[in-house]
Amino acid sequence: MNHYQQLEAEAIEIIREAVAGARNPVMMYSIGKDSSVMLHLARKAFHPAPPPFPLLHIDTTWKFRDMYAHRARMVRESGMKLLVHTNPEGLRQGVNPFTHGSNYHTDVMKTQALRQALDMHQFDVVFGGARRDEEKSRAKERIFSFRSAGHRWDPKSQRPELWNLYNTRVRPDESIRVFPISNWTELDIWQYLHVEKIPIVPLYFAAMRPVVRRGGMLIMVDDDRMPLEPGEKPEMRMVRFRTLGCYPLTAAFDSPATTMEEIIAETFNTVSSEREGRLIDSDQPGSMEKKKQEGYF
């Protein structure tokens, strides 16, 4: 077996194991490239049946418009059920990344919204697309990552995880987040997308897009909700994205890469790690670790 077949076989084994032990499983779907890989793996794991769980999208309402279009397409093609949840309280208060800042916006519209959705549906197994190469605290997280009541992650009392034996048992109120692509790297994701011809959001490919430069980052003006600061004028630049999230919080970068081959070549040659394009991680030292303890994915 080649390297991708190995990664794929491991991920499928993990997905099947989690489902076999689950009462009410769900797969997080963020529309990004990792989610695309996860969805593809889930379909492979259960073919000819459709995956026996729904997709869950935590919608902050601030995603790129292209992402919403892609979401509609993938739901249509996979035949899976899609659950969408937005924090109604945050929506009512009009929480947004501009006036409330990235920290508060992320806490209310992502972390709290996620907890609301999980509480509401009482999922016991939640698939996520996190990878261990993304960030230092991820490197220590289990593939089957146990959450106590209240969705808290306690890095000091994680269950030992030996061989490919996963403890899938939980008590009521407890849950497990399952990360089937823990052992993949960013390059693996791109290569797998390429080899398997998996459709992804067009924003990953370079195109002329309206951007402003803010705090050293290129932010795309995706709709008219974005307030421009004095002196800011959107300029058209050839840019693309390495990760996708809320458009005001996701930095674009200059790139000529318009094909999958060019993206892989660029990724291979790149010199900055993936999460640099996400503003939330650099707020404070250990910030991802803190968010995870609070229940963030």
Partner: peptide
């Protein structure tokens, strides 16, 4: 790595 070598590169990775 250049895009035109990508086929070779993927083959090598595999």
């Amino acid at each position: 790595l250049h895009a035109r070598n990508i086929v070779d590169y993927l083959e090598e990775q595999r």
